[in-house]
């Protein structure tokens, strides 16, 4: 464990609490892509199956349980409790265009040809692109509530912090995970546009609005 990874994970935790806070305080999931949230639940479930047969640490175990549980809870909130506030007509990204290529990539790039390892690879590739339905929705509506942008910023920060973590691990542990690093770089790159608007507008106290 190093500070980059710790703060990355904490930022990931924070993003989930911000999202829950957004839903509970506005009593609405307006502006949140159900598809992205469903993809994250898929990512956590397919990646953290090792929870049942592999012990890494108490930290690792607790976080895995938390990510699976919170992502399922968010799906429940969106699908049942606050269902009327979710507008599927603006959440139109075709997720099959993401799932298909991720299956192919997992079959091509993995560390071992076994079910858990293939699912692990699949989850890594899927996580890299899972934010796309959300960003697509943002692009379509052209604006977002400030709290939603804080959620996205915390999620992006988590990914960004994993990059110095990998550099650090390369030098201190001689450890490289090419699949995670490649997918992680792509994932972080997807946030660059968002970060630009977040830093130049939201953090200056303005509303998140995309130029027409």
């Amino acid at each position: 464990m190093n500070l980059f990874r710790l703060f990355g994970d904490l930022s990931h935790l924070a993003s989930i609490f911000i999202l829950l806070q957004k839903i509970q305080s506005t009593r609405s999931c307006r502006g949140i892509s159900f598809k992205t949230q469903a993809l994250y639940a898929t990512v956590f479930i397919t990646r953290y199956l090792d929870l049942f047969y592999e012990w890494v640490s108490l930290y690792n175990f607790t976080m895995k349980v938390f990510f699976i549980a919170s992502s399922c809870y968010i799906l429940y909130l969106m699908k049942y409790k606050y269902r009327p506030t979710h507008d599927p007509s603006i959440d139109t990204f075709r997720v099959e265009y993401l799932l298909g290529p991720c299956v192919v990539l997992a079959l091509l790039f993995h560390y071992k040809f076994s079910i858990p390892e293939l699912l692990w690879s699949f989850s890594i590739f899927l996580e890299a692109v899972a934010i796309l339905p959300q960003l697509f929705m943002l692009q379509r509506t052209g604006e977002a509530e400030t709290i939603t942008t804080h959620y996205l910023a915390a999620l992006g920060a988590y990914r960004a912090l994993y990059i110095p973590n990998w550099i650090y691990r390369y030098f201190t542990e001689d450890m490289v995970d090419p699949i995670a690093v490649t997918a992680g770089l792509v994932q972080t790159a997807l946030y660059l546009d968002f970060f630009y608007v977040y830093f130049t507008k939201v953090l200056q106290g303005q509303k998140f609005e995309l130029p027409a």
Partner: peptide
Amino acid sequence: PLAHPEHDEL
């Protein structure tokens, strides 16, 4: 180090 890294990251 390239052979099967442990999946200890989240």
